[in-house]
Amino acid sequence: MSFDIVLTVNGTRRTIPIPDPRTTLLDLLREGLHLTGTKKGCDRGQCGACTVLVDGRRINSCLALAVSLDGAEVLTIEGLAEGDRLHPVQEAFIAHDGFQCGFCTPGQIMSAVGLIREAQAGNDPERVREAMSGNLCRCGAYAGITEAVLEAQAAMTQAPTSQHPASPRQGEAA
């Protein structure tokens, strides 16, 4: 039995057939839609590499059945930047070297975006560390991650109406 679901993925509303109800949101994104920025580190909700926003909330996409998310809005790492203009969290991760191998990074960044939206941590580093603890980083980039989240949050709070602060990035996109 195939279900058709409607998902708004990174701002684009689309009807997506789900021929196999076993398909998780993570596998749909990666294998079905080829949005491979979202990573599979454990597939069991234990590492956070698959974090995306669903209806504005960060969740583990590996533990969500795609078919049950009919009608949802999904934001993945691919939808965060506006063209060449990076999101403040992305900029801050580069500036603070908040990653090494980069594999957990899309999940970390989406988690950070979710954290800032939740507005529970404030500028308390301890609360940020706790709230980012669902994202493992085996390289050990936690110090830079915490700094990046705090800086991006400050930048976004100071300029809530402007889209993003000016990007320091030069040169062409990948």
């Binding site: 790492i77 691919e78 990076l86 992305q90 580069i94 990653f99 980069g102 899309p106």
Partner: peptide, 15 residues
């Protein structure tokens, strides 16, 4: 800063 940074923060780095 890392020259592969933009690829990694945008999900474009292909593993």
């Amino acid at each position: 800063t890392r020259r592969d940074g933009i690829l990694k923060v945008t999900g474009a780095a292909a593993y």
